[in-house]
Amino acid sequence: MRVAFVGKGGSGKTTLSALFSRSLARSGAPVLAVDGDINQHLAEALDPEAGPFTAPPLAAHLGEIKDLLRGTNPRITSREAMVKTTPPGRGSQLLRVLGDDELHARHVQRVGGVPLMVTGEFDESDLGVACYHSKLGAVELYLGHLADGPGEYVVVDMTAGADAFASGLFTRFDMTFLVAEPTRKGVSVYRQYRDHAREFGIPLAVVGNKVTGEDDLLFLKEQVGDDLLTHLVHSPWVRAAEQGRSQGELESANRHALTVLRETVDSRTKDWPTLHRHAVEFHLRNARSWANAATGQDLAEQVDPDFVPGPGALA
């Protein structure tokens, strides 16, 4: 299952992404964490005392990733003709979570016991000539060609705020958790995300964070309603970890919240047809908007009408 953590900058979505990924890994579940935020802090959140993350970022090898994923698909003539929304078809190279392939071997590094991939930072060479979503294209292609099976998890720390809607990446998940603080600003992103999620039928649940008492919880319930799934209380354990201090274990209330998140994900049924339909829809949108002109081709022809997505396509 693919899980996204979204929310306002500073809401704690990176911390929640790390806590959830670590809890899955410690349970023995196959899990891959992906840092898809412009501020690349997920490695530090997974283990504040870990050394530097040395695996190459996905965005730095986008061409090679395209070559791998297009495989022998005759509808994709070159890496230049493959854009971030190009959907898989017959002949495409599909991937398993942490599979024995070139992409995972090159880009995954364990941090805090969790396999992690990163998109790469927005650096000086990008200023004025690129947007961060060009880097996220590698994540979009990865998820589009991923045939994840039951009991496997991919956890993505997404860009902050409404920036998550700048590409079709927000439709590539089985479950989206929106992290919200109990403030007006904290729930403002929720309203934006709720409306877009409903338009596309995206499963969305709100996770309250940094709750200090009943007043905070009541505020979230009034603002979010039934979308409020669970909440985490203000955590001295998290603060101590961020400061490099060891302090027992995560508070029981917060451990319970993580359990609720996993139970919510596990209760969902994988909807391969909808995931693929969204992928095709956004690909056709991008083709009409800019990609046909950029590549000099009609990229609608890349859509394989006879392709059936899912683990069965691995054969």
Rank of each mutant, 00 (worst) to 15 (best):
G186Q: 14
P150M: 13
R194D: 01
A164P: 00
K210I: 11
Q109G: 00
P203R: 05
A105S: 15
E199M: 12
V114T: 03
G120T: 03
R110T: 12
M117S: 06
R90V: 14
Y142N: 00
D123T: 14
D101N: 15
G91A: 11
E152P: 09
T159H: 12
V129A: 09
A205Y: 09
E140R: 10
R96I: 09
K135R: 15
L146T: 07
E102N: 05
F177S: 09
F170Q: 08
M175V: 09
G128Y: 05
M175K: 12
G201D: 08
F200C: 00
R198K: 14
A160Q: 01
R184K: 05
D195Q: 08
A164S: 00
H104F: 15
R110L: 01
H145Y: 07
A180L: 03
Y153M: 15
L95I: 14
L103Y: 08
G208I: 06
K185I: 01
F173E: 10
V206Q: 03
G186E: 08
S167T: 15
D126S: 00
V108D: 08
E152H: 07
L98D: 08
V156S: 14
L94P: 04
S134L: 12
S134Q: 02
M158A: 15
S167Q: 01
T176F: 01
P115E: 01
R194N: 05
G149Y: 07
P115R: 04
T183A: 04
H133C: 15
A180H: 10
N209L: 04
G144V: 06
E152D: 09
V97Q: 07
P115D: 04
L98S: 11
Y193G: 00
V156M: 13
H196I: 14
S125V: 04
G151Y: 10
V139C: 03
T119H: 00
A197L: 06
A166M: 02
A162M: 05
A105V: 11
V179R: 07
V156F: 10
G186P: 11
E121I: 00
A130C: 04
E102G: 08
F122M: 10
P182W: 03
V139I: 15
V108L: 10
A138L: 10
D157W: 12
P150A: 13
V129T: 07
D100M: 07
Y193M: 14
E121L: 00
A130D: 01
G208N: 02
V207H: 03
S92Y: 08
F200R: 05
E121R: 09
V187S: 10
V108G: 11
G151R: 12
R198P: 02
G91I: 11
